[in-house]
């Protein structure tokens, strides 16, 4: 059984991390990242052509993480595959031992490195959650019985800070109805908005894993605010990070404070290091000493 599922169901505060597979076949750097953050994580998200940019597939990289002894969260976007390929890959994932799947829409190709690509979006994330739920119940999306079903622990993305809230909430509730058992959120800066999210999701029995992003450089802050969809770093945080004598140290300090606060609110934390993997133990460890 999925360690992530087990921990969440037991009420343990979970930690998830995130790895982007390489552009190419050299796995050394990816393995290094997995080895660095893996020991501190219940599970590691393996992104799927992150940022609509070409990477080795999440399916293969998730299996590698599993073989290394760590638990992956296989990410599947709706951008690059039609319903045949999506179902086929879900079946493949299960046979490869991938028990956790995070189902997301995916960034538009226009924002990535292949802007000439056709965005498929044959299914949207709610529909794909429904398809995965059907597979867990033993059928494909047409209702035909599968020879061997799946038992995925399914997650979805959520955006507690993006307004309008009523529409975000409706969307999240629909994802729960479609089968999402946990949410991983975009990076959180406003804890009150995280609290209102958890307050709504807890009664539904859905776990909320709150995102923390390590704002490791001024350039990273600008990238998020100018280029990354669905996230804005508030002005006071921008000032704090950009005004620091050592931006990376300040970013780790901020992330550490955020993790500490999130422990009292959510069911887990999802750490996005932006490459500063070595900071993960510190972000979590400093917290343990407190």
């Amino acid at each position: 059984m999925s360690r992530l599922r087990d921990a969440l169901e037991r009420g343990e505060f979970v930690v998830t991390g995130e790895i982007a597979p390489p552009l190419g076949t050299d796995l050394a750097a990816m393995r290094q990242s997995i080895e660095t953050i893996g020991p501190y994580c219940h599970a590691i998200n393996i992104t799927d052509n992150q940022g609509a940019s070409l990477h080795l597939s999440s399916l293969a990289a998730s299996r590698i993480a599993l073989e290394m002894g760590y638990e992956p969260i296989f990410q599947q976007t709706c951008r690059d595959r039609n319903r045949l390929a999506l179902q086929s890959d879900l079946l493949a994932a299960w046979t490869l031992g991938l028990e956790n799947v995070l189902i997301v829409t995916g960034d538009d190709p226009r924002s990535g490195d292949h802007p000439q690509a056709k965005g498929v979006f044959d299914l949207d994330s709610t529909q794909l959650l429904e398809v995965a739920s059907a597979m867990n119940a033993g059928t494909d999306m047409l209702g035909r019985p599968l020879k061997g079903s799946t038992d995925f622990f399914m997650g979805a993305a959520m955006f507690p800070e993006a307004e309008p809230w009523d529409i975000q909430l409706l969307r999240a509730e629909r994802k729960v109805e479609a089968g999402a058992r946990f949410f991983q959120t975009q990076a959180i800066f406003d804890l009150a908005k995280l609290e209102r999210t958890v307050a709504v999701m807890r009664p539904l029995g859905v776990k909320v894993i709150a995102g923390v992003i390590v704002l490791r450089s001024a350039r990273a802050v600008d990238f998020i605010n100018n280029r990354l969809a669905g996230l804005m770093v508030p002005d006071d945080i921008v000032a704090r990070i950009k005004g620091a004598s050592d931006v990376a140290i300040e970013a780790v300090a901020l992330a550490t404070e955020q993790v500490r606060a999130i422990r009292d609110i959510a069911d887990g934390v999802h750490i996005m290091t932006l490459g500063l993997d070595s900071a993960v133990p510190q972000i979590l460890g400093a917290n343990q000493e407190a």
Partner: peptide
């Protein structure tokens, strides 16, 4: 993106 059910995560 032509999504039937939205918004996606990029809405702000």
């Amino acid at each position: 993106k032509g999504l039937l059910n939205g918004p996606c995560g990029g809405m702000w």
